[in-house]
Amino acid sequence: MIIGDSKPLEEILEMIRDKPKVLVVGCRGCVTVCNVGGEKEVGILASSLRIARKKAGEQETVDEFTLERQCDPEYLEELEGKAGEYDALVSIACGVGPQFLSERFPNIPIFPGINTTFIGGALEHGVWTERCQSCGNCIVHHFGGLCPIARCSKSLMNGPCGGSANGKCEIAQDVDCIWHLIVEKMEAMGRLEELERVWPVKSWLTSRDGGPRTRIREDLKQ
C-alpha cells in the first residue's frame, strides 16, 4: 500500500492563492486506506480551505470530487467537462495522481495535496511501516521473507553493520536491526546455514536507478 501524509493547510493555501475556483480531487485507492485522500479527507480539506479563505475575506469557490482511482485513465474520464470549470485542481492522491491529472488536463494547474511517503503496511490502526522499495527484483526468500533493502538503514545485504547493538539499529533504539531479525528467523526455521551461501550479484536493472519504469502486459492490452 502507498502511504502518504497530508500537506500543511498553509502550503496548500499558498499554492492556490491566485486561483479563485478550485476543485479538491480525492482517490478511493491507497490514500483512502491510510486516511489522507479519500472522500472523507476531501471533505475535510475542502471545508478547511473554504473557512481559511473566508477568514481572509475571500469569496473563492472550493468544490469536492472523489475518483475511484487517479492512477487509471478510464476513471479520469469522470472529470471530463467538469475540470475545465476550475482554475486549479488539488489532488490528494499519491504522487501518481497529480501527474496523471496534469497529463489529462494540460491547461489546468494541478497541485499535490499530500506527500507520498513509502510503500508499506499497517502494524495497527493508524500505524504504518515501510516494507518495500519497489526494486523490481524481489529476493526476500533469501532472508527469511524479510527485506534488508527496505528495512536496513544502509540497505546491507550481507549481514549487520558494526553499529547494531542488542538487536537495535544505531539510528534509534526503537528501530529493530533487520539483520538481527533475519538471523533469528532463519535460525528458527533451521535454515541459518543458507545465509553463508554466496548468491549471484543482485540485478538492479529493474530498480529506479535505470530511470522511470514501464510494465507492459501483452495479455492484458486491448
Rank of each mutant, 00 (worst) to 15 (best):
R104D: 06
L76E: 05
P73H: 06
A83T: 00
Q99H: 14
L89A: 10
L79G: 00
E78N: 13
G81F: 04
A93G: 15
Y75V: 08
T129G: 13
P98D: 03
A93N: 08
T129K: 13
L123T: 12
P73W: 11
L123A: 12
P73E: 09
G84E: 14
I92N: 00
P109Y: 06
T129V: 14
Q133C: 11
I114V: 14
E77D: 12
N115F: 02
H125D: 15
L101T: 04
E74Y: 07
R104M: 11
L101H: 03
S91K: 00
I108F: 10
S91V: 00
Y75A: 13
L79F: 11
E130S: 11
P73N: 05
C71L: 13
G120Q: 07
P112T: 01
E80Y: 13
G113H: 05
I119Q: 12
W128Y: 14
I108E: 02
C132F: 15
I110K: 10
E78R: 13
V96G: 10
P106M: 02
V96R: 08
F105V: 07
P109A: 03
P109L: 05
S91A: 12
E85T: 05
G97E: 08
C71W: 11
P109E: 02
P109N: 01
D72Q: 13
A122V: 05
E103Q: 15
P112V: 04
C94P: 08
I114K: 00
H125M: 10
F105D: 09
D87Y: 04
L89N: 11
P106S: 07
Q70R: 11
P73S: 05
H125N: 12
G97K: 06
E80F: 01
G97L: 09
A83K: 04
T129I: 15
C94K: 10
W128Q: 01
V90E: 05
I114S: 03
Q99M: 15
F105A: 01
E103S: 15
K82C: 08
A122S: 14
P73M: 07
A93F: 01
L123Q: 15
P98Y: 05
D87E: 04
Q99E: 15
L101F: 03
L79T: 05
E103M: 15
G120T: 01
A93C: 15
N107P: 03
F100I: 11
E74I: 13
E77S: 07
T129S: 09
E103C: 09
N107V: 10
Y75K: 06
I92R: 00
C71H: 10
G113C: 08
L76H: 04
L101R: 02
E85P: 00
H125F: 14
F118P: 01
I108Y: 04
E130H: 12
G113S: 07
P106L: 00
